Measured scan of single mutants.
Amino acid sequence: GSLMYASIFGNVSAIIQRLYSGTARYHTQMLRVREFIRFHQIPNPLRQRLEEYFQHAWSYTNGIDMNAVLKGFPECLQADICLHLNRSLLQHCKPFRGATKGCLRALAMKFKTTHAPPGDTLVHAGDLLTALYFISRGSIEILRGDVVVAILGKNDIFGEPLNLYARPGKSNGDVRALTYCDLHKIHRDDLLEVLDMYPEFSDHFWSSLEITFNLRDTNMIPGSPGSTELEGGFSRQRKRKLSFRRRTDKDTEQPGEVSALGPGRAGAGPSSRGRPGGPWGESPSSGPSSPESSEDEGPGRSSSPLRLVPFSSPRPPGEPPGGEPLMEDCEKSSDTCNPLSGAFSGVSNIFSFWGDSRGRQYQELPRCPAPTPSLLNIPLSSPGRRPRGDVESRLDALQRQLNRLETRLSADMATVLQLLQRQMTLVPPAYSAVTTPGPGPTSTSPLLPVSPLPTLTLDSLSQVSQFMACEELPPGAPELPQEGPTRRLSLPGQLGALTSQPLHRHGSDPGS
């Protein structure tokens, strides 16, 4: 009898404990919600809404976190579960008819179910419309201010047509639940991603989709105040780019002037030289400038040598048109050559190039014969006009050509200096018209024969001689050997007369 009593008592207590286990969990969670309300000092109306929603959600799901349970299964099984949970929507909604099984599984994985109690606001006026909503159960109302403009029910759709707008718009009203509602919502990016994977279904979906109420604000059109608020930074940046392009296009129409201050000032006329910023005076940081632009901040801005204009002085008759350009485009679109090309026009420029290279940067340069637009006047290309890779490749080509020119210049200078040193070592320090008596009659020769300089066969020296023939050397430049009979510069000019005159010897006659 005691054994029977113990078994009955144990079973009854276990049954009672299981009955009250759900209630215990409910009270535990309710205590957490109330502690949250007390800690954050939530006001009474919002506090009442929180408690009511918790009670309804507990009775609806029995305190089970559906998302946590669903995430515990593998992905393939999750797709089947989501397809079952959203079967009513996918079967009865017209846009989803005719979709393949794979497309429906992908869509079912992207849908999220939302449960809303009465009085809950789903979308506020001015919120971004980031999702498309399908009503599965219940009814909602749409308000503009305090005026109800629409009441939607089961199988209705609200949001915005995503295929017509590249960016999400703003809501033009509040969406509030009238009863307990079940909503299926899919985010904008998720829907577009699935439709991109199934393009054959995309056309059918957009053609058959009928949005019951379009929440997009109709005033959000390009150029409206609301649109400016939504895309303020983007609009200002776009206007700045367009104004920069218009100014650079105007600059290219004036090829007669070359400016070292950047493309923003290349198009300024002579009357605007004294102004601080020219056409860019209202925004000094709008356009890029070269490193020399920092010198323009000092006094005497109108007389600054940074602004270059072609000189009108005539060229000498024998002067060549100019050196070879550094870039391939210089032959086609440049009416002034790079300062480095002028360094190779003569030997005198070679000796004085490194010492006063900055001073020569603004000297007169030889002109190319074609009066085409200036290379320095070409505006900086924006990322939309020329690819970045093209600019980098041009810079690399320019750097390689500069290296080759520097190597060639160093070799030419070394060769010229070597020839000058050899000339100085071969010439005796001094010569006299009267020579010392020699031991015999073989001493009648006034000077030792001097062998002429070897013929220069280097390509670089031939180019130097060509430049010497075309360029007029300055007075202080050293002379180079030329073709024809060679003669030492330090010898007297009348050596031929010395050989014809008898030598005057000093000596005593033994017979006297």
Rank of each mutant, 00 (worst) to 15 (best):
V147C: 09
I135P: 03
D335A: 12
R137T: 11
I186T: 01
E295L: 15
T425Q: 13
I350D: 10
L473E: 13
R358K: 04
Q421P: 06
R144M: 09
R265C: 12
H504G: 11
S345F: 09
E406I: 06
I350P: 09
S341E: 13
V450E: 10
V464H: 07
K239Y: 12
R394W: 09
P284L: 10
N349K: 15
P317L: 06
N172L: 11
S235I: 13
F134R: 02
G267Y: 11
P454R: 11
T442F: 06
P316R: 06
D412W: 03
L195Q: 03
S202C: 13
P299V: 05
P373G: 09
D146W: 01
Y362N: 08
R385F: 07
S341V: 08
E319K: 01
L261S: 11
V391C: 09
P383V: 12
G223N: 10
Q482N: 13
D412V: 01
P255M: 11
S202H: 12
I350E: 04
G511Y: 06
E231Y: 13
E297W: 15
E257A: 08
Q482T: 10
N214S: 06
S312C: 10
P284F: 13
S283D: 15
L326Q: 13
K154T: 13
A370H: 12
N338S: 09
P454L: 06
P263D: 13
V175D: 02
S286H: 10
V147Q: 09
P225D: 10
N155L: 05
S272D: 13
S432P: 06
R388M: 05
R358M: 12
P314E: 09
P225V: 09
G173T: 11
P441K: 04
D146S: 07
L242H: 07
L495K: 09
R245M: 14
P316S: 09
E479W: 08
S272Q: 07
G267V: 11
G233F: 06
L192A: 08
N155Q: 09
P310M: 12
S443I: 11
P492G: 10
S410L: 07
S139F: 09
V147E: 13
P502T: 12
P481Y: 04
G226T: 11
L453V: 11
D329R: 07
L242R: 08
G126W: 01
S293N: 13
G169H: 01
S243P: 08
R505K: 11
G126M: 01
S393W: 15
A414S: 11
T444V: 09
L230G: 09
L480E: 06
L395K: 04
I186D: 03
E324C: 07
A177L: 02
T425C: 08
G281I: 08
L215E: 02
P291G: 08
R385H: 11
G169Y: 02
A266C: 12
L340Y: 08
E231K: 10
L480S: 05
S286N: 04
S460W: 04
E364A: 11
V427T: 08
A370L: 09
P379G: 11
F134C: 01
H184I: 09
E160N: 01
G264C: 07
S290I: 15
T336G: 10
Q482P: 08
L308T: 15
G153H: 08
G233P: 11
M424H: 14
D251G: 09
